[in-house]
């Protein structure tokens, strides 16, 4: 692109008076991006997440060694020794390569859970809060029942019923983690449902589905995003816990949680086996947290201004 056309694009994106809905939308995205970019922490988060995605996509090319190649003669070597940048595990496999290959699995778990549990919670919570009455009572009792069980036990029961495997583990985690989101969404809905702007759209003839999706969801999303990003590390670890119990990712699959579980036995003598995947989880959840915080500010036009 030439310099002048770049400049005219910038002018098009900076005008005070957008001519069309498309332009207004573009300006909004552009301003959002500018806001996000001015937030250093959010940018660090974004870089971490992008790094995770790239690692997951190009794992076979990035990994220095085969993550499944065992060599018992070179087991439990310290980081830097014998060409193992982050050390080797109890079967002599390269920890770095396993972390790189595990990125995909981790991303898969995280994406699947965040696409299901908060969405389910949002739907249940807003429907329950907006409609009230019997619907509310019934949905909230179901939510309470799910909340009453310890998370891992419930997940165990689901996986036991559905069979072991990463998909089922994710499904089990999603099924056990939606109730807090539902509670949160319901509380937000109760505060907005009696506002005049909801009455106003009702008077325009809008039905409950349009009101919930178009008018209540946008107001619940920012607090849900914060909550989800805070839960991210927990989700990865629950998946690991299931793997540890033999109900999630199955050995020899490279998965961060499973790696921590197997490294746990050696934690006193060979700290790096559990610590390295632990650090990976820490960095990724930090990335999600930072990005989530930044996104929340961008999604709220009022906050972004002040």
């Amino acid at each position: 692109m030439t310099q002048s056309s770049t400049r005219s694009l910038t002018r098009w994106l900076r005008t005070d008076e957008p001519a069309s809905r498309l332009q207004a939308r573009c300006i909004q995205v552009y301003n959002g991006w500018q806001d996000l970019r001015s937030n250093k922490l959010a940018m660090i988060g974004l870089i971490i997440i992008l790094g995770l995605v790239v690692t997951a996509l190009f794992a076979p090319f990035l990994a220095p060694q085969d993550p499944y190649a065992q060599d018992l003669s070179r087991r439990l070597l310290a980081p830097g020794q014998d060409g193992f940048l982050l050390g080797s595990d109890e079967l002599g496999r390269d920890i770095l390569s396993r972390i790189i290959h595990g990125a995909g699995t981790t991303l898969y778990i995280v994406l699947l859970v965040t696409l299901t549990a908060p969405v389910a919670g949002l739907i249940v919570g807003t429907v329950s809060g907006y409609l009230g009455g019997w619907t509310d009572a019934a949905l909230m009792r179901i939510t309470d029942i799910f909340l009453a069980f310890p998370k891992l036990i419930l997940a165990l029961a689901f996986v036991a019923a559905l069979g072991a495997g990463i998909e089922n583990a994710v499904l089990a985690i999603a099924l056990t983690s939606w109730p807090p989101y539902a509670r949160l969404a319901r509380a937000e809905t109760l505060t907005v449902r009696n506002m005049d702007y909801i009455a106003a759209i009702r008077l325009q003839g809008a039905g409950p589905i349009r009101i919930i999706v178009g008018h209540i969801w946008p107001l619940c999303v920012s607090s849900l995003i914060v909550r989800v990003t805070l839960d991210m590390a927990g989700i990865i670890l629950t998946a690991a816990g299931l793997g540890f119990l033999g109900l999630g990712a199955q050995p020899p699959m490279a998965e961060w949680g499973a790696m921590i579980s197997s490294g746990r036995k050696y934690i006193l003598d060979y700290w790096w086996v559990a610590t390295m995947p632990g650090l990976a989880i820490f960095i990724v959840s930090l990335g999600f947290n930072l990005l989530g915080d930044g996104l929340r500010d961008v999604l709220d036009p009022k906050k972004a201004q002040s």
Binding site: A24, A200, P218, L219, D300
Partner: peptide
């Protein structure tokens, strides 16, 4: 009915959706 009768509310700070243009 809705295309015949419409209402204007008291508080303009509460009657417009904060996230809608």
């Amino acid at each position: 009915f809705y295309s015949t009768v419409q209402m204007v509310f008291q508080d303009p700070y509460a009657s417009l959706h904060p996230r809608h243009t």
